[in-house]
Computed example of a mutant assay.
Amino acid sequence: MKLFAKVIGLYYNLLSVFNLNAATHKAFILFCSPRKGAITDEQRQFLDTSEKHVLFFEEIPITAYIWKGHKTTILFAHGWESNAGRWEPYILKLKDIGHTIIAIDAPKHGNSGGALFDLPLYVEFLNVACKEFQPEVLVGHSMGATSIAYLHYKYPVRSLKKMVLLAPPAYLSRIMADYQKLLGYNNNIMASLEDLCEEKFGMRFDEFSIPKYAKAFEELKSLIIHDRFDDITPFAEGKAIASNLKGSKFIATEGLGHSLPSEKVYSEVFDFIAS
């Protein structure tokens, strides 16, 4: 995989010498194109226990899975190359004790539409879902965690009382630096990508900072869980977000990696929602 990525990067670098604009757009499309995210047969069996609703953002279908209850309404947002089925261990417990659960598939993931995945589009999906279902709790993993945090900064969710961030990336600049390292892009492509990001989304790489945005909703009760040995999102990024949320609780795990599959993690989330 890494060798293949380097070959692609070498090709785009060569293309950039002759046509920087074409190389930049190819690099952007590659960055926004998940390789995974399809629903497995096992996940499909679980998701089929829900009521399915299809919402829309600018004619792009958003698939929402709903388990109705009589208690708190909780909305789940998965991360990159995943889908709503990843939340099964959480949903099984929470629906059994009477909560209303909503989980959505991100753009170009699961059963949702979209030609590409980017965080601003995911935020628009989540905003549509929040307007429809008025959740009191948001739970996100990885890019889903980053997306719900940015959502509440950009479109404050008035019904929201609590937020759970699992292994949250904090800085777009770090994500793009990792992308450059993986593909071996030259600095001309990266500078052009940053210009394209500003044109499309109105921000430079270093302007997107979840710790900075978190200060705008520091009164919100928040739980952040991050593994010390996360090899996808640096542990320090979860700590940085927590440090800017005065009402937050930060839990460090060891040996669970980025996905945080653990009964202890599930219990911490359940207890936080119940508190």
Score class of each variant (00 low, 15 high):
29 I>W: 11
77 A>Q: 01
257 G>C: 12
141 H>V: 00
30 L>R: 14
92 L>G: 01
163 M>W: 02
58 E>G: 00
66 I>Q: 13
50 S>W: 05
215 K>N: 00
63 T>H: 04
55 L>G: 02
128 V>P: 10
21 N>C: 06
214 A>E: 00
176 M>L: 11
258 H>G: 07
43 Q>F: 05
12 Y>M: 13
220 L>M: 14
110 G>L: 01
124 E>F: 06
144 G>S: 07
3 L>A: 13
68 K>G: 07
207 E>L: 07
82 S>A: 10
57 F>I: 11
84 A>K: 05
106 A>R: 04
24 T>Q: 04
187 N>I: 07
153 Y>W: 15
213 Y>S: 01
10 L>R: 12
101 I>P: 01
35 R>M: 10
162 K>M: 10
167 A>S: 14
233 T>Y: 10
162 K>Y: 07
98 G>M: 10
182 L>P: 09
65 Y>G: 03
202 G>Q: 06
267 S>Q: 15
75 L>P: 06
194 E>A: 01
149 A>R: 00
196 L>T: 10
60 I>E: 10
157 V>A: 05
181 K>V: 05
13 N>D: 11
82 S>V: 02
52 K>W: 07
201 F>L: 10
108 K>W: 05
255 G>T: 13
264 K>I: 15
200 K>S: 11
36 K>H: 10
217 F>R: 09
180 Q>C: 06
177 A>C: 09
254 E>K: 11
44 R>F: 11
4 F>S: 15
71 K>L: 09
150 Y>H: 13
264 K>R: 14
217 F>C: 01
174 R>K: 11
133 F>G: 05
119 L>I: 15
228 R>T: 08
53 H>E: 14
275 S>Q: 13
19 N>K: 14
79 G>N: 06
112 S>H: 05
30 L>V: 12
87 W>P: 00
120 P>D: 08
258 H>C: 02
259 S>C: 07
172 L>K: 08
59 E>S: 10
220 L>W: 10
114 G>Y: 09
223 L>D: 05
226 H>F: 02
158 R>Y: 13
165 L>R: 00
84 A>M: 04
22 A>T: 13
119 L>C: 10
